[in-house]
Design a protein around this nucleic acid. Structure first.
Lengths: 200, 200, 200, 200
DNA sequence: ACTTAATCGAGACGGTACGTCACGTCTTTGC
DNA sequence: GCAAAGACGTGACGTACCGTCTCGATTAAGT
């Protein structure tokens, strides 16, 4: 089984290597300064191997971000302490924003451009992929709160469920860096908790 | 006898023409596809005249956006009907996002990249320039509401004052187009109004 | 079985095309008005393909001239009639000066600038490449003349061998066009022939 | 009539200053690297003052060269020793070639481009301005030689009179630097003297 | 086991836009 | 009323990447 040479990668192996290279570049230089040639070089791949799989930088980065996101967000089991659970998940979101995932999102946002009237399936799909997992987790947390009477039932409205992540996103995009712990606290105490708390 | 012949320098005239060209390009092709050469050509200016004033595309667009924003945001006099006043201002914001100003912001966000620890004065300055006018207007609206008893005094917390604009921004950036009237209504009815309304 | 499929690299084909484009431009607009972009466009090549091979206009033109000169100067077999042989070769030189080769030399001369003390290998090399073939041919002619007694042996001094070409060069450079037949005749009858003829 | 300050130069004063600046630039960087802006800056003049007088670099340099040449070449009284006289004048020519005058000529040659058929008055005029003074001096020398019997009368043919300067020019242009003393000696001993010497 | 076809790394290529430089014109300002 | 200063439109410069293509070398699959 002694593999002699540094054999040439193909298929999924290669794809993984490219993703990793892309994410590293993303973390180092940011989306705006990311060069396809740099990704190819870092992955020790030919440029053609990149363009064979994705038509442009945007698609590559989207795929790379999806690749990383998969199997990470996943599960979270609410404790019943709504504020603590939310804070915990929000912290995880900000951590992600600090890495290549955040940089990927920034790039995606920068190139976004939805024509006024039409629908753009791709944009919707990606936004859903970003938001849905968060919504699911926050909905679970809120349901637990409703179950133990600390959260009013109307709080399950989608816009409220998505409120905390939305504010984190807005903060990250406008400030260029993820929200700090203090900001998370303020968002929860001034906005989210007052809005969802059940008043006896 | 105040002579009005302030005799504008050639420079200012030219600058204005470049700004207009830049904003038109921005509206037509978006920040990601904006070319300095296209701006120069549309303004019937040489590229050197652009680079003499701004070191790169980002600075040019920022200056152009500032140029337009000046003297536009202007004033707004609250009527006392908090929800209606807010809806009115929010509509104005979305209208602005639909034009070159929105495109300029998208581009700014896309290239934003704040190093973890340090402070970036420029970023802060621009963000303030965007947020401050909105905050002032919303604060005025809320104060009017507090005055007539429809808004609870704690709503003057900055994060709450800035809440509606933040959600509009987040919507615009993530969806690629400004919020619709329906979205404005939902934001107000599900989130902002419940949070600020004074409970007798 | 000598396989002729030497499988020319893409590079050489391209290089040839660039040389031809350069020489055509040279003939049409002259060295002083030659633009790298025009050469690239005429050769249907990218500018980078030019700059990858030659650092500047001067090097490109030198290479193009060398390329053309190769395998052209060729051979000349003296007839023994010294004056007729010289006139023939001089005519060939003026014909060459009328084409891109002459224009290349004019450009080379125009940019030439040898520092007082130092030696400039490149300059020497090119000058030798221009002069040596001519010297060889004229030496051959003179030797034939010496052999049949019409030329005095001392005429083989390098400065005399190179005299006719030198005067053609001087004429071409100072007048901007090659010497005419009449000028060739005068040079031979008034200067060269009197100088080399053997006096019995 | 006491002119007070270092008043602004005009007319001839200014022209002289520009010429001097041009010649200095010429000597320092050579014709190919001479910039109008540099000449203007060195002369502490506006570019408009240059372009008002000469339509382009070529004309400016030609005028500057003429300016310097005037009142310099002038007179030379032959001693009767033909070889010595010629060597003396040739030395003066090479000295001139080593300065800005030579650089001006190099530039002129480099931009020269006479269309095949037509006549170009300007080119002829300048060439004459360069050659005529030399021809006059050499003719004077030869006449003195003819008078004392050391030179054969046929040597007064224009092409022979102009032979030595032509060879100096050719040397200068092709080598990039003026002929040395040794070269002058060779030209005289191998070519010019044998050709003009009267054989008893 | 031995072709055979696909896939890879490397990087040359035709392009486009970059940001710079000098041109020759034109306007402003000061003497 | 002309000269200096220098801003301006223009266009070529030489560079950096783009996305496509070609070239052998490598490797997995089919015989």
């Amino acid at each position: 089984v002694t593999d002699s040479t540094v054999s040439r990668r193909r298929g999924d192996d290669l794809e993984r290597a490219i993703f990793e290279a892309a994410l590293e570049e993303l973390a180092e230089v940011g989306y705006a300064n990311l060069r396809m040639e740099a990704v190819a070089a870092r992955a020790k791949a030919g440029k053609a191997s990149l363009y064979k799989r994705w038509p442009d930088r945007a698609h590559l980065i989207r795929a790379a971000a999806r690749h990383k996101a998969t199997a990470v967000d996943t599960t979270f089991e609410p404790s019943g302490d709504v504020r603590a659970d939310m804070a915990h998940v929000m912290r995880r979101i900000t951590e992600n924003q600090g890495g290549p995932g955040g940089e990927a999102m920034r790039g995606w946002v920068g190139e976004l451009r939805a024509p006024a009237g039409e629908e753009d399936g791709e944009v919707e799909e990606i936004r859903e992929a970003i938001e849905q997992p968060r919504i699911r987790v926050f909905a679970k947390i809120l349901e637990a709160g409703i179950a133990n009477g600390t959260v009013r039932p109307e709080a399950l409205h989608p816009r409220i469920v998505n409120l905390a992540p939305s504010l984190l996103t807005q903060h990250f995009l406008m400030k260029g860096r993820p929200a700090t712990e203090a900001v998370i606290g303020e968002i929860l105490d001034e906005i989210v908790m007052p809005l969802i708390t059940a008043h006896r």
